[in-house]
Simulated scan of single mutants.
Amino acid sequence: MFRQRKPKRFNYNPRFSNENEETSSDNEAQGSKEFLREWREARRGKRKSRPIISMRTLLIVLVLLLICMYVLERKYIQ
């Protein structure tokens, strides 16, 4: 009447298995050397440094300063 589902089959290999200890240590050593090489190359590359105060912020401060100077000049030099 009802069809039974087949059990799923998983291809799980444990991370810290004793079976492939020799091959995994070789792969780890090669992987870590490759990772270090890529990391060093990335560090040597040009770094983009952000300016402490962006150009947009400086323009806003300049405009506000000019407005304040104008208002104070009108108020005290009439």
Rank of each mutant, 00 (worst) to 15 (best):
V61A: 13
A42W: 13
R47V: 07
S32K: 13
N27I: 08
I67E: 00
P7W: 00
E38S: 13
M55A: 07
K75V: 14
F10H: 11
M69R: 04
L58H: 03
R3L: 05
W39V: 04
S49L: 06
R37P: 00
A42I: 05
Q78F: 11
E28K: 09
W39L: 14
S25I: 12
K48S: 06
I53G: 00
E38G: 04
Y70W: 09
C68I: 09
K48E: 10
K46D: 12
R9I: 14
S54N: 05
P51Y: 00
R56P: 00
K48N: 08
R3V: 02
T57C: 03
K46V: 13
P7F: 07
E22Q: 11
L62H: 03
F2H: 09
E22K: 11
R44A: 12
L66V: 08
V71K: 13
S32P: 02
I77N: 08
R3N: 03
N13V: 12
K33W: 07
V61D: 09
Y70N: 02
E41N: 12
I60F: 11
T57D: 05
A42D: 13
E34K: 13
N20Y: 06
E73H: 12
G45H: 01
I67M: 11
K33H: 10
E34L: 05
L36N: 15
V63G: 01
M55R: 10
I60C: 02
G31V: 02
M69W: 06
E38A: 09
E41W: 04
V61G: 01
S24L: 06
P7K: 09
R44C: 11
N18G: 03
F16G: 01
N27Q: 13
L72I: 14
I52L: 06
E22F: 08
L58D: 00
P7D: 05
R50Q: 08
A42R: 14
S25L: 07
T57G: 00
R15Q: 13
E21A: 07
R47G: 05
S17N: 14
A29I: 12
Y12F: 14
P51E: 04
V61T: 01
R15T: 05
R37V: 09
S49M: 02
M1N: 15
R3H: 07
K46I: 07
R40L: 14
Q30A: 04
F35I: 05
F2M: 08
F16E: 11
D26E: 10
Y70V: 03
M1K: 14
Y12C: 09
I53Y: 01
S32G: 00
R74L: 03
E22W: 07
